[in-house]
């Protein structure tokens, strides 16, 4: 009688799933989102437009501050005090000229004084910003940043009729 060689039955353990590729994918996605969220994201400057003063009837207890921005980007406070140099679009980030353009220290000081005066009579300061039609948007944002630094958020925005 022929002897049948019986093949040894390979022991089959529990079925295992190959998960290393999945982990690779997960890590790739993880790194992608880590990088994507740490990229420079947009920030904001809040502004509330005040209502029509004639509708309220009573004038504000503190005279509203006035900021004028000319077509070349020069900034004046209350009509006569220069607080910002003309805008220089060629100033590169990191340079002293760029820093001087973005930091309007004199204006911030004037706005803080106005804020203190308003707080003393228990009211909110109001500032009117008037820009020439061709003033670059960046210069208005510089003014808004100064207002935010002085913690003033009620701002009237106007456009001059001519340059």
């Amino acid at each position: 009688m022929a002897r049948h060689k019986s093949r040894p039955v390979e022991e089959q353990g529990e079925p295992e799933m190959e998960i290393s590729s999945m982990i690779d994918c997960c890590f790739l996605l993880l790194i992608y989102f880590l990088v994507a969220t740490s990229l420079v994201s947009e920030k904001k400057l809040d502004v509330n437009i005040p209502g029509n003063p004639s509708a309220g009837g009573t004038p504000p207890p503190v005279e509203p501050g006035r900021i004028d921005v000319s077509a070349n980007g020069a900034i004046t406070w209350n009509g006569d005090m220069p607080v910002g140099e003309p805008y220089d679009a060629s100033a590169q980030p990191g340079t002293a000229a760029y820093k001087a353009q973005r930091h309007l220290d004199q204006l911030v000081e004037a706005l803080k004084t106005l804020k203190e005066q308003a707080v003393a009579v228990d009211t909110e300061p109001i500032v009117m910003v008037t820009g020439a039609p061709s003033t670059p948007h960046q210069r208005i944002v510089d003014v808004m940043a100064a207002l935010a630094e002085a913690d003033i958020h009620t701002v009237g925005l106007n456009t001059t009729a001519s340059e």
């Binding site: 947009e42 920030k43 904001k44 400057l45 809040d46 502004v47 760029y98």
Partner: peptide
């Protein structure tokens, strides 16, 4: 209510 979109200043 207005929000001005900006980027943080690099200088």
């Amino acid at each position: 209510n207005m929000v001005f979109g900006t980027l943080p200043s690099r200088g």
